[in-house]
Amino acid sequence: MRSLLSCLLLLALTSCLSMNFVRTRFGEPVADASIAKMESGPQDLTSCLAELGAPELVWTSEDGNMRMAYAWSDVFDWGFSVTFSFNQFVQISGALDSVDHRVHSVVLAFDEDLQLVDISRGYLWDLAPSAQASNPAFRLLNNTPR
């Protein structure tokens, strides 16, 4: 036990072994109460913007409807890495990381008269596959959603 502890400490002190726990939060979640209010009756673009503020994305979907996406993320990544140098020419290293890049979203769809016709909740990757390239949330998370 003592020798194992000594080895671990030696690796750690020489920066050969490290563990990391990183939480990344982007934006603020849309309140359930706001969604309930949107679903309670007819809404238009004006009332939606007043209730939810500025969306993350605005685009026209393939069906011609204007869509707006509100997005946020809260991901907790962990990992560890090990590096060991045999001599000045040979070094081995390994790393294992858990990475979660899912971005939560609420997507609103409007008809030609800018009346709200649909509300979808889910991951932005699923709800706005054609509109994600310009999304800072994806850019912040290395642009590699799962």
Partner: peptide
């Protein structure tokens, strides 16, 4: 020494 804990 061994652990990095961070938040953004």
């Amino acid at each position: 020494i061994l652990v990095i804990v961070a938040n953004a």
